[in-house]
Design a protein around this nucleic acid. Structure first.
Lengths: 214, 214, 214, 214
DNA sequence: TATGAATGAGGCTTCATTCAT
DNA sequence: AATGAATGAAGCCTCATTCAT
């Protein structure tokens, strides 16, 4: 947290620029020269930090994964109700609807573009971010008592968000995404809370027994 | 009906190859040389049929648009119940779920890749295919009596399909798509039919029988 | 003069289009397809009339040469005074000054572009048109009595016109050409008539002997 | 003054080769590969120095412009009599008459070829070189006291040179150019010096001694 | 660590010319 | 005579990656 901080500034700038430009123009159409320029780093220097374009893409994806991880953890810690957590996450996408309407979902961009590069690498890393979401959402549904339906619900939830993103980008209209988001939020709100309360009969607010599903 | 057929064989082969390869590898990563080779046509000859890569892409999209148009028309003609038509269309995607799980939705591929090529051309043409679907679906919901909700429903329907495609491709799993499709079909089945029937005299408030707008 | 007339219509159209487009865009930048389209003739048909692009260029130059020949002959026949003939020709360029200001001299265009094609052919044919002018002008100066200076004068005259054309095109300004033309006309007007009259002894109107200014 | 020299060697070689080949074969007929080969630089490396063929052309023209600028400045500094300066410049073309007889004026080559490339760039840059000459010559004529006639004279002078170049190239004969140059030199020598001398008090009508505008 | 320079493969497009009918 | 189609060479430009310092 301290030793490598200054030295990694350039590395971070590269990752950040890559993330931004890959989202805007796609991974294929973004050249390393573009990224280097955006990050204000001499192109020759890029290769000191990343041996390959794919490696840089992987780093950008990894950074995003970790950021999301923190968000999920934060939600787990700060919100008691899994339903609230889910709604919170869904509503988050309302904040980025303009960007999504312009460029689509950055993760799917990577998945789509990855086909041509490293089979195992970039594509899987990007898909892993979706997997991370689904796993987390599944846990929330699980806690809500939707045992067998937890994973399907989680998948449907992400599908809903991604469908909204596709529509918004295709029609260049963020409102479409906003509408779908509200639909999803309404769905989440209407979902029954099936979980069995343990000790505190009747009213237990935070009686969540076994949340971790993994 | 026959003379022109043979003359256009090469052109058609080119379009078909382009459609296939654009879907598989994306428009950017597919070179004209790839297409020419796939179509077994000398590269230099491609120019005779299409002055530009974008022009070829447009032709491929146009072909798809027309094919879909025919499908919609066929459904309109052969099925009386709009709900049936919608379900039919949704179920159609079940047939292509393996392909979608491998390569995603071909139309969105074009939309995503188009950003880098002709702004007005390819992207709009691809988005137009989605627009075509939404317009048609809206008409179906309209006939079902969902006046104000017709368009939102249509958008939600396509969003559902696209979300399913994104998930299937991201996880390389066609089943996810199948599940989402069933969910959508169930939703369509459960939708109330609000339209007023003619037969039962007296009940209809506004005796508008066939609101079908062609 | 009659048998091949209708059959040569296409040929003539090709030559005419070639002349126009070669002047506008240069010989190199004008494709045979451009010419064919301009002449409204299928490209495959061009080769029936001309085995090669250079051959078409030669035909266009030859047509121009003949047209000029007729003009010179006409002037010789219709004007008695060689000085008048020369002034007439020089003033002719005033009519095309706008075109020259936009595209330069069509003949020099060919000469410049010819370097890359047939060494002996196009370039020589184009230069021949200049030679034709110089020869004719030389004869006029000769008749005016400028024996030894006839050819130098002829060369200076064409140089003056060409210099005017270069300036007009370079600055995109036809007026420059108009000015130079007037300068040349004034020079011609001021040139002494040295020729010795045969019959009428002592009748020389303006007995200015040798003011030749080089 | 030395470090940058070696670093720019390749760039300079590229510019020099471009200038030479553009003059010899024209800008259109000279490929970047030709230039690279002539400069002994791998083709792919050209892009590092010039993003575009036009950009390379612009650099070549700019180099020529600067070289001429230095010449004009040198003449202004080393020769007191503007007439001498003008004659000096005109006679300079005698040294390049063989080259001009073979390839014409390199600047006009660019102007003629530029029509097909960048409208604003190359053509204007090339024409600017002529403008630079005319502006300088105009100043000389001005100092000689040819107020209103200064610019026309300047234009006529350049027109004379260019006409000579056109003739020399067209007939492949450097002597023609030599003759025209001498004619121009004679014209300059014969031009009256209208400027008012300072020394002689009382005689100067409009005591404007040195109108030289830099 | 850092960096400007180098490089070669490949992409899209153009076109004169040929061919088959 | 006529013509749509075919073809290969070549041109300009891009870029991931490597190299020398």
């Amino acid at each position: 947290m301290s030793s490598a901080t200054s030295a990694n500034t350039k590395r971070d700038r590269l990752i950040e620029s890559a993330a931004v430009l890959f989202h805007r123009h796609g991974m294929i159409s973004t050249s390393l020269a573009d990224i280097a320029k955006h990050a204000e780093i001499p192109i020759g220097n890029v290769y000191y930090y990343f041996k390959t374009k794919d490696e840089l893409a992987m780093a950008a994806l990894e950074k995003r994964r970790r950021a999301l991880e923190e968000i999920y953890t934060f939600l787990d810690d700060s919100l008691d109700d899994p339903r609230e957590r889910l709604i919170h996450v869904v509503r988050f996408f309302d904040k980025v609807k303009e960007e999504y309407a312009r460029h689509g979902c950055p993760v799917y961009r990577m998945i789509a573009d990855a086909g041509e590069s490293d089979k195992e690498g970039v594509g899987n890393a990007a898909a892993g971010i979706y997997g991370q979401f689904v796993d987390w959402a599944e846990r929330q549904f699980h806690v809500l008592g939707h045992g067998a339906e937890a994973r399907p619900h989680a998948l449907t939830l992400l599908a809903g968000i991604q469908g909204a993103a596709v529509m918004a980008k295709s029609f260049g209209n963020p409102h479409i995404m906003a509408n779908e988001i509200e639909r999803l939020a309404a769905w989440l709100s209407a979902l029954p809370n099936k979980r069995i309360f343990l000790g505190k009969a009747g009213a237990g607010k935070r009686g969540s027994p076994s949340q971790d599903a993994a």
